[in-house]
Design a binder for these strands. Structure first.
Lengths: 335, 335
DNA sequence: ATGAAAGCGCTAACAC
DNA sequence: GTGTTAGCGCTTTCAT
């Protein structure tokens, strides 16, 4: 932690010019073996590592892509991230991760990393929109940096994005409940300020009306995607005079909370209540009973996002401006 | 995404000198209102954001701390991270997160961010040791950058660290099992190449021998901290002629996997088998039955790490070179 | 093959 | 107040 050596120190120590040191670093073959090793010794001696800031200034180096997610503890994001890291690494980029905790201020703080060129591109999850990009939202004004939107929960802006079709996913979930003869289907939704939530809700409604079922507004109760809120929501549903016989939860976490509430009441799944979740996160298979759910292709989503970013970096025209990934019904034992 | 404007563009456009633009940015009060607003217009017009690389070069700016974790999808880390972010933000630092997936190569790649001064300090979770720091491992040689070790799973190096006492935690877990009269206590351990694992295992052994119980080597089966491995481990235990009546799992994830195996056999917890986990991750309370576990203070751990880092940044002598956080037994229904 | 020197985008002394 | 100028640590012509 002593004073950081610079290229000057190395040059002086090795008795060569700055340029030579620089060359040893990036085109060693252009330097005589003798001096080359002298320089290398010096480098080792000082434990010298070039200052990346200074390097980048002259020469566009490794690409760094910043990934911003709302919550790191949400397993869905964790899964997507893992793949982003893998693919990016493969493609020779570095990945930095930032968590906003759904705070605009945090988001903006992270976005500075890319406006100020510490990172070269941004993959943005979640429903918040960077303040700096306010003008670019609906206006056709071009984006000031490479951006790809993931998870598709943001409205309008005209930029590359990868998402899943939450409406059709919701439909699929509810149809599955319907298929087993459920008549009183409730929904535990996410916060209605998020598109993902309203989309899944719309899917629920469509499936119901398609089946000619009655829609009861008081049977959709909104949680916040957490287990706790799922538990509360289900508990409140079970306090009503008439119980639902099927419940669609907008996240697996809420479904797991709901399961706890159902078990506490001594009810059985799927006999008394059929329950279906959303995400297919790791824990779903180990729930009691194992959770039937809609699988979001988190990993693919990450991969697709990185590939789009890569395309932008390379100035390639992106064929599909928005790619929609396939969801899938995973049938286990809860419905 | 068009050509990035520089301070020159702004200066020219506003008809002032570079210095004036720079001043408007960081000491606006020293510039006449008239010119100030001219410059601001120019900035707005070009959508100018100073290049952070260039800035840092002259002037040590915001501190960036890099946090490296093995796996982002491990909820324990997620929890610790959340708090790191919070505290760091409060202290005016930026946090970057990197995931190694327990690969040395990945770790080293991230560590470059700090040797090359993109980040100013490193908080390191996990059991891997950066290659660059090879010499500093046991040698007393000083570290080339601010480093604090978290989670305490690395041997020897002489640097600030924050950890929990895994041995005593393990003891506590097993004592609890013993207290309810269990006679045949098995353990599902983590990989034995990690200190966290061997420490918890040692705690298990100590508690057993302290109680004068027989120790059977074939009753410790090793998993890899995942639910899957917990399931497998428990299943294998249940294939033996004699079943354990108590099981200590080195992670909640493994415990949840184990619960699934136990339920499948139609056994009851804690009546037939008492089960205790480790971590107290979010899902523990919603398991079936709710999981008794040892709580690791993930959040405090994050906070402590950041504060130590802050102290290093400020050149303060760190009072406690290694801080050990308290664990806690959380009794729920599985044991 | 090597070194001198210009410059990357910005900040901070120093003059005016 | 404001502009000029000298760097920050590095890369890259361009001579030699």
């Amino acid at each position: 932690m002593s004073d950081t050596p610079t290229i000057h120190d190395i040059a002086k120590f090795a008795g060569v010019s700055l340029a030579t040191v620089s060359r040893v670093l990036r085109e060693p073959e252009k330097v005589t073996p003798a001096r080359r090793s002298r320089v290398r010794e010096a480098i080792a001696h000082f434990n010298y590592v070039p200052n990346a800031m200074a390097q980048q200034l002259r020469r566009p180096g490794f690409r760094t892509i910043l990934v911003i997610i709302p919550e790191i503890s949400n397993l869905f994001f964790a899964e997507a991230l893992k793949n982003i890291e893998n693919v990016a690494h493969q493609l020779g980029c570095r990945v930095l991760i930032g968590e906003t905790q759904r705070k605009q201020e945090r988001l903006d703080h992270y976005v500075e990393l890319v406006t100020s060129r510490v990172a070269d591109g941004l993959i943005l999850f979640g429903s918040l929109w960077p303040s700096v990009l306010h003008d670019s939202f609906d206006a056709g004004s071009p984006l000031p940096f490479p951006l790809v939107l993931a998870e598709g929960s943001v409205y309008g802006p005209n930029c590359p994005r990868v998402k899943i079709d939450n409406i059709r996913s919701g439909e699929m979930a509810v149809r599955h409940l319907l298929a087993s003869g459920r008549k009183r289907i409730a929904m535990i939704s996410g916060p209605l300020r998020y598109t993902v939530s309203t989309d899944r809700l719309e899917g629920y409604q469509r499936a119901l009306s398609e089946a000619g079922m009655e829609q009861r507004a008081d049977w959709v109760v909104v949680g916040n995607f957490s287990m706790e809120s799922g538990y509360e929501a289900m508990a409140s549903l079970l306090e009503r005079p008439e119980w639902p016989d099927g419940v669609f939860c907008a996240s697996d976490e809420m479904a797991i909370g709901a399961q706890a509430a159902i078990r506490e009441k001594g009810l059985r799944m799927p006999d008394d209540i059929a329950l279906i979740g959303f995400d297919d996160m790791r824990f779903a298979a180990y729930a009691s009973p194992p959770l039937t759910t809609i699988r979001q292709p988190a990993a693919q989503l990450g991969e697709a996002a990185v590939r789009m970013m890569q395309a932008i970096f390379h100035g390639e025209a992106i064929e599909q401006h928005t790619v929609i990934l396939d969801h899938e019904l995973i049938i286990r034992e809860s419905a």
